[in-house]
Design a protein around this nucleic acid. Structure first.
Length: 340
DNA sequence: AACTTTTACAACCGCATCATT
DNA sequence: AAATGATGCGGTTGTAAAAGT
């Protein structure tokens, strides 16, 4: 299929719009409607291409655009919708009256994405960023080599201590070599080194308040243990001696997605293979607010019609809320940018 | 106060898709 | 069926304002 340029660029203005141009465009559209974008600029007396006019109108001048700060609920909605729809900004915008796809995309990239990263959530998968840490191999190894790690507080403390990126890199490198039998040390020395890294020479264990309460810590733990066990089964049948009590106690759920809503109903229009669908299938007690996840294209019910807004919430408050939801924080010392 | 860096967001670009000829 | 044109969409860039040094 051929694709002609949207307009003749010669002599056409680019860059920020002036108030005069805005006025011309607004007046013309109010009088004649948008009509044909290609011919509009000429008819409206604008030295712009039609595409530029369309963008200016749809993203900025349209009278039904809600400007100003995103409300807390809008933000929550964006996050939930993004976890289902991905970067389908127009689809997300369709469920947020008065907001444009461009605005939501910008807000995502400048605020939400960063906040999710800070709180240890992968903004693409919406799952805890375990990918940051090749932690499963560490846990697998340490569990097998040191049964005392089965003590939960030790386990979690170790996990948190490993957030030190330098130690983490060292530990993963050593374990990687160890798994490939490429360690230039004796087995005893290897085990000693691994255990030392994990237990003895790391930072002092920190308070684990955040990990010791709420379902989220359990979910994370489950996921870690699941991964550890899976790798154990797949990679090392000889070492597959993890006590069954480990499975019994913790590997009962496998949540992939950390978001849940207290007043939950079930979306019914999701693709069969969507992450959400698989999550939902295995977690029927989790679901989403119908007001948030409405049937695409069939519902234009405003999302905020009967909801409580928290417009005054600050960035910090929002972050705090996010952390409360997720109960999973990466220490400040961990440089997330390094992993982006 | 001057300079540098970071942040926020408007605008652009190129591709995909749909409609029309 | 193929070519062409219009529009929609998502990724990226440019730049003004704010924050930091």
């Amino acid at each position: 299929m051929g694709r002609a340029p949207c307009c003749d660029k010669n002599g056409l203005k680019k860059g920020p719009w002036t108030p005069e141009e805005d006025l011309k465009l607004t007046n013309f559209i109010q009088l004649h409607g948008p009509g044909n974008w290609r011919t509009l600029p000429k008819n409206a007396g604008l030295q712009r291409c039609g595409k530029s006019c369309r963008l200016r109108w749809t993203n900025y001048l349209r009278p039904d655009i809600k400007r100003g700060r995103f409300s807390f609920e809008e933000e929550e909605t964006i996050i939930q919708l993004h976890s289902i729809l991905g970067n389908k900004w127009s689809a997300i915008a369709a469920r947020l009256p008065g907001r444009t796809d461009n605005e939501i995309k910008n807000y995502w990239n400048t605020h939400i994405r960063k906040r999710l990263l800070r709180t240890g959530i992968d903004p693409v998968t919406h799952a805890p960023r375990l990918d940051l840490l090749d932690i499963s191999s560490i846990i697998t190894s340490s569990l097998c080599n040191n049964p005392s790690l089965l003590n939960m507080s030790n386990f979690l403390g170790t996990t948190q201590a490993l957030m030190n990126p330098e130690l983490l890199k060292l530990a993963t490198a050593i374990l990687s070599l160890k798994q490939q039998n490429q360690m230039p040390f004796s087995k005893d020395l290897q085990d000693q080194l691994c255990n030392s890294l994990l237990l003895d020479q790391l930072q002092p264990l920190q308070q684990l308040n955040q990990y010791q309460q709420g379902f989220s810590s359990e979910m994370i733990t489950n996921q870690l243990l699941m991964q550890a066990n899976m790798e154990n089964l797949g990679n090392n049948s000889q070492e597959n001696s993890t006590p069954s009590s480990l499975n019994d106690g913790f590997v009962s759920q496998q949540p992939n997605n950390m978001y849940c809503s207290s007043n939950a109903t079930v979306p019914h229009d999701l693709p069969e293979n969507s992450n959400f669908q698989s999550f939902y299938n295995s977690n029927q007690n989790f679901s989403f607010d119908q007001s948030v996840v409405s049937t695409p294209m069939s519902s234009s019910t405003p999302l905020n019609s009967s909801s409580t807004f928290i417009n005054s919430s600050t960035e910090d408050e929002r972050e705090s809320y996010c952390s409360d939801l997720l109960k999973f924080e990466i220490p400040e010392s961990l440089d997330l940018d390094e992993f982006m």
